[in-house]
Design a binder for these strands. Structure first.
Ligand SMILES: [Mn+2]
Ligand SMILES: [Mn+2]
Ligand SMILES: [Zn+2]
Ligand SMILES: [Zn+2]
Lengths: 139, 139
DNA sequence: TGATATTTGCACTATTGTTGCATGGATCTG
DNA sequence: CAGATCCATGCAACAATAGTGCAAATATCA
């Protein structure tokens, strides 16, 4: 499947491509780091908070984005790879939260090793975050 | 250093052993899983929320407990090993959050591998949580 | 004992995340 | 195209968690 436009990308995940959803997706594509709901509020100040919240919720439910719980207290979101299903451990990767600039980065090439869980512990999802200082911030 | 009593354990971390702090520590020792502030509120309903909040904060600042951000929305706390300094990656371990019973487990024997971070990314702390179903919950 | 420092309790505040409901626009069906 | 239906949006309110300011109580020290 070849996805060129934002509209096609939404349709591929069975998301109705409304004006707002297209604009949020464009913002996500352009962002280098993961974004939060309050980031969206700042970017789209004319739109209602609830609409943006539900936009992210819809994206999440349809596997367009994944959720990141860094130590910042606010949930962040980042685009999934085109054919990602967010299954553990295949599609789970490391995240890095910079406590200086408060940006959260995806490291998709750093996969998560399989942990040797005790008998009858069934993994479903994973959240792996390293906190520290990123390369853009002075030591 | 040999730490037998709760009082000694607090003093070893330079925490003044008040009555409340001793009771909370005992509860932490007895707990099999990580606890939240609201767990403490239920357990010690006579005490003020703020006191319990600040007790955990003090424990955290003195390295007696470590903080776990599972996906439950509430921060959890668990006792550190006696000589733990919470440094990455030495003292960081995997946590498991059961979405059925909402308990959070420490797996201290499952260490965290060193990730090959890009140049000039300086790790300081880590939060590694797998969500799923624990061995006590029916499939 | 009196002075000083720490701990606790109460009342508020802040932030994030979430839901109910009414409205408006899009989409479907005949 | 008209009417019915469905979905997205906006507004308001709510809930849960986290955190602060300040004064009273308690412990510690000289
Ligand atoms: Mn990511
Ligand atoms: Mn732990
Ligand atoms: Zn940074
Ligand atoms: Zn369980």
């Amino acid at each position: 499947m070849n996805i060129n436009t934002s509209e096609e990308r939404l349709k591929a995940r069975n998301i109705q491509p409304t004006a707002m959803r297209l604009r949020v997706l464009t913002y996500l594509v352009e962002s280098q780091a993961a974004i939060s709901l309050s980031d969206l509020e700042k970017k789209f100040s004319q739109a209602d908070r609830t609409t943006l919240f539900r936009t992210l919720k819809t994206y999440l439910e349809h596997g367009l984005v994944h959720q990141i719980n860094d130590a910042s207290g606010t949930t962040k979101y980042a685009l999934c790879a085109e054919n990602c299903t967010c299954t553990y451990p295949d599609d789970i990767h490391l995240h890095f939260y910079c406590s200086s600039c408060e940006q959260t980065y995806c490291f998709p090439h750093l996969g998560i090793p399989e942990f040797d869980l005790p008998e009858n512990f069934k993994p479903a999802r994973g959240n792996f975050v390293i906190t520290g200082q990123c390369s853009s911030c002075p030591a």
